[in-house]
Amino acid sequence: MLTSVQTPGSPEAARAALQAGAVPLGGGTSLMARLNDRAGGDLRLVSLRRAGLSGIDVQGDTVAIGAATTLADIEDDARLSYLSGCVRSIASPPVRSLATVAGNLFVPQPYGDLAAALLALDAELDVLGADGARREPLERVVTDGLRAGDLVTRVRFAAPAEDTFRFHKASRRRLNSGSIVTVAARITIEDGLVADIRLALGGLARRVMRAAGAERVLLGAPLNAEVVARAAEADVIEPFDDAYASAWYRARVYPVHLRRALLGA
């Protein structure tokens, strides 16, 4: 049963509450949905809504987004227009008004499309832990998780150069639908060859994953259908069955969607 909901006014107070055993509540769009119909032991929540963790800071090409910033805020920020397609593919407006950036990093697949985008952007997290503040690559956090009591306070990344960010999500419905395959990529082409590539996938494993094998195939190669087809075979994916699609289907259409993400058709 829910025994308390704290609304600390600072990151430090929030971290203290977490370290005392409370569970962080971002937008609540995943956690509250489960709590509303679930029995279980006593539970204390610490809401991050008032903890001073919201806000978008853009300095040159350095972007810092507060952990409790909502997806709606990102959607509305013209400076982050490259993320608009990603964010608008997530849930619906009344959910995006609540859902937070940090929350999206930890929702189970096939959700967490923003996490895939941020992984492709090589984001880092500011984490407030028992030992104070530290930086963690998002890639490590989505793989290994955080320590109990750690509080993500900020997401940082370098804004992608113009036209270098790709986001493609296949889902059963056009809007408001979990991912079948999500492809997020930061890609630079120079002289007809891939000069920089960072590729993240959603829907194809229990966590968002970096497609390091595909990156290796693509780097230095011409961006064409034949190369992309090889790239699609370069990673071990472990897709799953869920209400949206089977593992077979996800694996079957991943090459198609990788190609559409990178080549546009």
Binding site: A33, A91, R172, R173, R174, L175, N176, S177, G178, D241, D242, A243, Y244
Partner: peptide, 20 residues
């Protein structure tokens, strides 16, 4: 083949939305 993965909410129980 399986009774697993039965949808329990409107997110998983799919119906065409206004864009479909």
């Amino acid at each position: 083949h399986s009774r697993e993965h039965g949808p329990v909410d409107f997110t998983e129980y799919l119906m065409p939305g206004p864009a479909d």
